[in-house]
Amino acid sequence: MNPQFIMDGLIAGALIGLGAIGVTLTYSILRFANFAHGEFLSWGAYLALAISGSIGFLSANLTKPIAPFSFGWSLPIAALLAVLLTGVLALALDAVLFGRLRSRGGAVIILVMASFGASLALRSLLEFLFTSKPAYYTKALQIAVRLGGGLRATPDQLLVLGVTLVVVIAIHLLLTRSEIGRSMRAVSENPALAGIAGIDVRRIIRFVWFIGAALACIAGIMTGLLVQIRPYLGHDLLLPLFAAAILGGIGSVPGAMIAGLIVGLSEAAAVQLVGAEWRAAVSFVILVLVLLLRPRGLFGRPA
């Protein structure tokens, strides 16, 4: 077996892990599986595309690739704005849809259903705005560098791994060391007690929406950079994200990241062993195994 699959799996796994952290955080605080989470990846990718396109239109200088990467300054600038806008999108969705359903005190599954409707609308809206034709941030080609051990990676791919590492550590520190992270963990364990203890639960919920969407946006942009941008980008990643969030244990950030890498590596191995056309089934197999053997996941609390 070609060892290169390890590099491919790590990169795919890093992106899945990043998205899964968003899923696991929103799931643990909001207490429902958000089927619209995948659309935050797609919207993030397209928002960055539109913004970086506009920047390039204003100043061609900013699209000149920053060596050794394939993109110019327009993309990181656009990424920053896209992260903010995707966060705003999530907050808006909560304000008009989920928040209202929540305050009515209905069953969890109504929220799941609403997220299902929202995901379809959001995805098709992208298809309407940008058509289903794949898009790219840059046309520049990149040459993979040898890393030794038979592994190769492009500078963009290495950057993605680096950014993921930094973001994951930052989120982990935020959650374990900061006041708002402490409050998030408290709300996740017991929202009613959190309110009694003086935590503004609605503020925490808004914060978590924002963080989850921001992480999704970063994952979406990096997927778009390494592969391509399509309206189905996020939808196709949704099952791997759920599989990783559940495998890692709902609420666990390190769990989601490690599980993301496991899913990514398994997918890459499956591509080698049974063929690329079965890649999407890997997440399902993992999901079934987790639900069968250890429904609370690797690092989850017992239900």
Partner: peptide
């Protein structure tokens, strides 16, 4: 309840 939803999606 939502694990069933995720599994059926899978």
């Amino acid at each position: 309840s939502d694990y069933l939803a995720i599994a059926t999606f899978g």
